[in-house]
């Protein structure tokens, strides 16, 4: 288990997402409307599009290119054209920092 620091908690607005690159890979790190942190792979499973440019609505992240949607809590695909689930990673807030277990 390797907890990696992403950013201060306040750097991500509630119901928003940022891109986080680490170890040669790209991730998407979210905060829910209630402020809880979540993390998934950063690229849509349909085409290689950064989800961090997409819109967070309730528990979903929408791909900014094709409207494919995932539940960012579970990674489940919710709307075509995505069919394959996103990988998710544990995330937490520790001492004001958002951390992701990669």
């Amino acid at each position: 288990m390797t907890w990696v620091s992403v950013c201060p908690e306040g750097e991500i607005d509630p119901e928003d997402v940022i891109r986080f690159d680490h170890g040669g890979r790209t991730y998407a790190v979210y905060r829910s409307a209630a402020g809880e942190p979540f993390a998934t792979d950063g690229l849509c499973t349909h085409e290689k599009v950064h989800l961090s440019d997409g819109l967070v609505m309730d528990d979903t992240i929408e791909c900014p290119k094709h409207n494919g949607r995932f539940n960012y809590r579970t990674g489940a695909p919710l709307r075509a054209p995505v069919c394959v689930a996103l990988a998710t990673y544990p995330a937490r807030i520790n001492d004001g920092q958002i951390e992701v277990d990669l």
């Binding site: 085409e47 290119k65 094709h66 054209p81």
Partner: peptide, 10 residues
């Protein structure tokens, strides 16, 4: 056509 149009945007 939904998929076709997704490709058009890609």
């Amino acid at each position: 056509w939904r998929w076709s149009h997704a490709r058009h945007h890609t």
